[in-house]
Amino acid sequence: MTGDTALLSRVADSLYWMARYMERAENVARFIGVNLNLQFDLPLDPAGQWQPLIDTSGDTAIFLERYGAANQSNVIQFLTYDSDNLNSIFSCLRAARENARSVRETISSEMWAQVNSMYLQMQAQPGMPEPESLPELFHSIRLGCHMFQGITDATMTHSEAWHFVRLGRKLERADKTSRILDVKYFMLLPSLRDVGTPYDDIQWSAVLKSVSGFEMYRKKFGRIHPRDIVDFLVMDREFPRSIHYSIRTADESIHAVTGTPMGAFTWPSERLTGLLRAELDFTSVDQILREGLHDYLDKLQVKMNAIDRGLSEDFFAAAPDDRAVAVQSQRS
């Protein structure tokens, strides 16, 4: 027992959510940044470019009720500053910071200082800046999140606590990659027969840029093709934002937490993650497309939600029957 530091369930929960919210803030910032850039290339129907961003966040109903038709200004307001929107960048940074604050004795001082200054900077902003400084704003948020991630990996011992941070980051990332792919694929589907036209190329490139994957895709596949993009974003074994890669590293982290050998399980959440990983290990992109990408991603979302619930039951929740857990802890 000595030498191994216990991790409080509440602390594990906060670490996981701190990481999820930071990752979420980064993704929202990237989606908006890419969209801002995209509209310079697509003069047609600029307003139509903004609705999909709301769809990606999953808050379409709330947005419609409060803002009506989507345009650049109200979408950016909603996704960046709106403190009532729990998935806005501001809300994410606030939630990440609150979680970090409740575990600041567990994380490194540098991690805390980074998330705290990002929040304070955002809070000090009087409102939406001039349109010309918007790209810089989203760029700096992304950079800040990358820095947080780098600081985390470089200053925090890679023990159990760190693995919960990584779990949060990876599951959030897999979720966001699947959402952007789902929304954009659906939107671009009618133009599938126009594959190879400049218009199509720009749109698909934007999808890749939304997950910082454009350059890495080019190295691997060269030409832009929807099938290869799905292959890359869902199945790639090496690209760090692909769903497969994210789930595989999440699986590794759960095993690091529990000490169960890879390929086996002791906890329900471990089993669910292992199942999803195995499925991604042995699926082919053509099979996914035959089944229908949307259906496939839908099921994937359901599975990832189950993993999230499982983690909460297995590790975060105050045990309903402490006595049962006490027995278990003596055994291990």
């Binding site: 216990a6 991790l7 409080l8 369930s9 509440r10 594990a12 159990e160 919960f164 937490v257 590790f315 105050a318 045990a319 402490d322 006595r323 857990v325 006490a326 278990q328 802890s329 291990s332």
Partner: peptide
């Protein structure tokens, strides 16, 4: 909420059970 008393001792709830 991280603590519980069982059999006269105080325990904290961790990811690996009670300590």
């Amino acid at each position: 909420r991280d603590l519980a008393v069982l059999d006269g001792y105080v325990w904290m709830r961790t990811t690996k059970g009670l300590r």
